[in-house]
Design a protein around this nucleic acid. Structure first.
Length: 889
RNA sequence: AGGCGGGUAGCUCAGUCGGCAGAGCGCCACGCUUACACCGUGGAUGUCACAGGUUCAAGUCCUGUUCCGCCUACCA
């Protein structure tokens, strides 16, 4: 059997490898720095260098690839800029774990050697994810791949740091920051995850220093009392009026500390008196500043009590808590405890409980930057899609707090600040200074800290294009056209890129931001290692192919809703891939002898074309318009659905079936060439429409269709043509389809075997539509499996038939010896009941003065037309029903 | 505590301007008809969460209630 050169079934793994290589070899992903074409650019959300492709990446990159392939085919000079993030803490953790396996710590190696090891690790094992992105079909311009720690980007980081510092937007100071005792570094507020935890609120007596009376304080963290430097009450709280200004004795520690009044304290909560531990709590810290209270730090960087903790020194914070409680109890200071539900912060990297701690850190003063970032979205310079995220974005920017950017780790961009050991001068510079500009000393030491990973990510849209150099790439592609990312990093990344882009480039970093949802498992649970519900994208690609996988992601990603993913769903779309493959195989088989569009039929006016061709061209044109706008509006699921419906249920189910007689029969060579021309064009257009979604399959078939055309990747995306709109063909074809469906329907209900050929007649009063049906008898005969079909304006009902109704007439099917009318009767009765409901509804509407007075005239006319049809249809139905009632003996 | 989203067929979800409730999967029946059984043809399936309101007309707009999910901020 001829197979059109296509194998029995589509083999994803072979095609994927073959065509990806072909695209790379042809340099099809390459973007030009200078071009006559309009630019369209996307920067990839750089995956962590330690990363493995997960479902989130897969969705994210599938969507980017869809858009970039679409725009490329539309003729834009497209750039999809790839790269990776050095992922400070994550990467350092990986390498530290490897060292730990050898019984080593980074301190054993020293800073320089450790960083060298991280680079070694990066070169050898890092960036696995890049190859995984390629498996997905990502058409990034790999020649431009960047890394946040490479030389160029590191220069950009320093440059921005220095500018911010000189503009007074970066400062250093002692504040209570979020501290991870395991990672041994400060992290930003955003990097803290909170989880509800059932704990206790302990009530502790603090005796007054004067010896008469006591104050009861409530706390969830009794061990921090070692660092208390005051007790605070609300100034308006009558209960404590006489006490403000007096002192209490801190139990266990025996330090005398003051009672202060501050409106921060809420009288309603707990006992109304709060212990103040300035070194362990940002609120307490602020209060202490207002009241000039001293600060006692009681823990070291690992959460262990230090020498300020007296006999608790050396104890872990939680061990210390137990001991403090035991001692308070023993000494009669513990008044009791009550259950208390509160949120405990933990490190987003390692999930260790956060220890808010005072320390010296670098901060970005973000308020002025946030203001601009906000305004840019308000003014529409950047669109956030779906728009509902704008509110969240504004909310966060309005309440933004300064950004702690220093990290006490080694892997990252070292802060470009040097301290002169001679005169104490602070030098902030892009290039390493050799001596102090103030005193000339050569004894300089660089700040030990590195920058938050997100600092360099924030520069990504321009640093990857060569900034601070004024490159052609920067001129051409900045601002980038689109950013596609998950909403979970709206604050971490998107907002910060907005701030930095506006600050550095004086323009927004991107025109559109499309925020997609999270990928969850089939039960809507977040995928995680601990839940064991992770679906590995690579497994899915191996099993079902990249195209089916991409299409599934796309089909399920409705705006604003999470994607629930399961293998079954991907398998479903693998069936779709197979369907397309077979349709293509069928088409190619029947195009093998095709000699080109040399056919007199093509010269006829469009109205004289065969109906099936008129119709499919019209529909193809409509779908082109739909899919184009759906991609442009980021309604990916709708685009997927439009393509699925059209390809499967119109192209395959109807068009291919309609043309089989012509293709097989070979009786009418002219018509056959005409059909072949249409078939070829339709298939090619379908492939082009589908290419951004299914790059591999479409390339495979495209190449089989005509090898001389080059890659489908660079063929022009189909364009809607208003000249091709042919509503009349659509109406005529709908009538034909109705007639076929009605006959099939009757066959089914009467249990007439599919193989048995039937006699039918169709009565259509309207001249135009009757001609349409007359012209379509071969379609109907074939698809409804008839041996004879009569068409007339007012055909008499033959005896021994059942009838069905179509929108412009009725269909009679001779059933003769088939006596089982019961099912047909039930069906017809049901239909009549439904029709009566609709009719009553319609009559009521048209009898309603208000409706006639107020509704849109078009709506009224539509209603009248509907009413006429219903009445007509009812007459026919009633008559049919009478024929179905068995004669009384 | 505030903010946001959701509740539509057995399941997963679409539903844009208010104008006759849709798809996929699953289910039932029939069928190996020369692209495809990863298929074809036909079929069944709804209190659009609940209660009010606006409107000629509400799944759609407004108000309230309720349940679920998420985000932000945390009062010790």
């Amino acid at each position: 059997m001829a197979t059109g050169g296509l194998s029995k079934s589509y083999e994803p793994s072979i095609s994927e490898e073959k065509w990806y290589r072909y695209w790379i070899a042809g340099d099809y992903f390459h973007a030009c720095d200078t071009s006559e074409k309009k630019p369209f650019s996307i920067v990839i959300p750089p995956p962590n260098v330690t990363g493995m492709l997960h479902m989130g990446h897969a969705l994210n990159n599938a969507l980017q690839d869809i858009v970039i392939r679409f725009k490329r085919m539309q003729g834009y000079n497209t750039l999809w800029m790839p790269g990776m993030d050095h992922a400070g803490i994550a990467t350092q953790n990986v390498v530290e774990q490897l060292l730990a396996a050898q019984g080593l710590t980074r301190h054993d190696l020293g800073r320089e050697e450790f960083i060298a090891r991280v680079w070694q690790w990066k070169e050898k094992y890092g960036g696995v994810i890049i190859n995984q992105l390629k498996r997905l079909g990502s058409s990034c311009d790999w020649s431009r791949e960047r890394f946040t720690m490479d030389a160029g980007l590191s220069r950009a980081v320093r440059e921005v740091f220095v500018r911010l510092y000189n503009d007074g937007l970066i400062y250093r100071g002692d504040y209570v920051v979020q501290w991870c005792p395991r990672c041994h570094t400060a992290i930003s507020d955003l990097e803290v995850e909170y989880r509800e935890t059932a704990g206790f609120l302990w009530n502790i007596r603090y005796p007054l220093a004067c010896g008469t009376g006591e104050l009861v304080v409530a706390t969830t963290r009794p061990e921090t009392m070692l660092g208390d430097t005051a007790v605070a009450v609300n100034p308006d709280d009558q209960r404590f009026h006489g006490l403000v200004g007096k002192e209490v004795i801190l139990p266990l520690v025996n330090r005398i500390i003051p009672i202060v009044a501050d409106s921060y304290v809420s009288a309603e909560f707990g006992s109304g008196a709060v212990k103040i531990t300035p070194a362990c709590d940002p609120n307490d810290f602020a209060l202490a500043k207002r009241h000039n209270l001293p600060l006692v730090k009681i823990m070291d960087g690992r959460g262990t009590i230090n020498d300020n903790g007296g006999r608790y020194q050396g104890q872990d914070r939680y061990v210390c808590r137990e001991n403090v409680l035991k001692d308070l109890e023993a000494q009669g200071y513990l008044l009791g405890r009550e259950p208390h539900l509160h949120s405990i912060g933990c490190c987003y990297r390692c999930k260790t409980d956060i220890e808010p701690t005072v320390s010296t850190q670098w901060f970005v003063r973000v308020a002025p930057l946030a203001q601009e970032a906000r305004a840019a979205v308000e003014e529409g310079k950047t669109r956030i899609i779906p728009a509902l995220w704008e509110a969240t974005y504004f909310e966060w920017l309005n309440n933004i707090r300064d950004w702690c950017i220093s990290r006490q780790i080694w892997w990252g961009h070292r802060i470009p600040v040097w301290y002169c050991q001679g005169c104490g001068n602070t030098i902030v510079a892009v290039t390493d200074p050799s001596d102090c500009p103030r005193c000339g000393s050569v004894h300089l030491s660089q700040d030990e800290d590195v920058l938050d990973t997100w600092f360099s990510s924030a520069l990504w849209p321009f640093s990857t294009l060569g900034w601070p150099d004024e490159t052609e790439a920067l001129k051409t592609f900045y601002p980038t056209s689109l950013l596609v990312t998950g909403f979970d990093i709206l604050f971490f990344w998107v907002a910060r890129m907005m701030m930095m882009g506006l600050y550095v480039m004086k323009d927004v970093p991107f025109r559109d931001v499309y925020l997609h949802a999270l990928v969850r498992d089939e039960n809507g649970e977040k995928m995680s290692k601990s839940r064991g519900n992770i679906i590995d994208p690579l497994d899915m690609i191996d099993k079902f192919g990249a195209d089916a996988f991409r299409f599934t992601l796309c089909a399920y990603t409705a705006q604003g809703r999470d994607v629930k993913m399961s293998e079954d769903r991907i398998e479903g779309y693998k069936h779709f891939v197979n369907k397309i493959w077979n349709a293509a195989k069928f088409s190619l088989m029947n195009l093998e002898d095709y000699t080109g569009p040399d056919c007199a039929l093509l010269d006829l006016p469009k109205e004289d074309f065969p109906l099936a061709e008129r119709w499919i061209c019209h529909r193809l044109n409509q779908v082109t318009a739909e899919v184009t706008s759906q991609i442009e509006e980021y309604r990916f699921n709708e685009a997927a659905s439009s393509l699925y419906q059209f390809i499967w249920h119109e192209f395959c189910d109807w068009y291919l079936e309609l043309i089989k007689p012509t293709l097989y029969g070979k009786v009418n060579p002219e018509k056959r060439i005409f059909v072949q021309t249409t078939l070829r064009h339709t298939l090619a257009t379908i492939l082009q429409l589908l290419h951004p979604f299914m790059p591999f399959l479409t390339e495979e078939i495209w190449q089989a269709l005509d090898e001389s055309q080059g890659s489908i990747m660079v063929s022009p995306y189909p364009v809607f043509d208003s000249e091709l709109v042919d509503e009349d063909a659509a109406r005529q074809m709908n009538l034909v389809m109705e007639a076929i469906t009605v006959i099939r329907n009757i066959r089914g209900e009467m249990e007439i075997p599919p193989a048995r050929k039937l006699k039918a007649s169709i009565s259509v009063p309207d001249d135009h539509f009757r001609r349409a049906i007359s012209g379509a008898t071969s379609y109907i005969t074939h698809l409804a499996n008839l041996e004879a079909l009569a068409v007339g304006a007012d055909l008499a009902r033959p005896t021994g038939c059942v009838s069905g109704i179509i929108s412009s007439g009725r269909v009679f099917v001779l059933v003769e010896d088939t006596l089982d009318l019961g099912r047909r009767r039930v069906k017809t009765e049901k239909e009549l009941a439904k029709l009566d409901r609709d009719l009553a509804n319609s009559v009521n509407k048209l009898a309603n003065r208000d409706f006639l007075a107020k509704a849109d005239p078009q709506v009224i006319e539509k209603e009248r037309e509907k009413n006429r049809q219903l009445v007509q249809r009812r007459l026919l139905l009633v008559e049919s029903l009478q024929k179905l009632v068995p004669m009384e003996p």
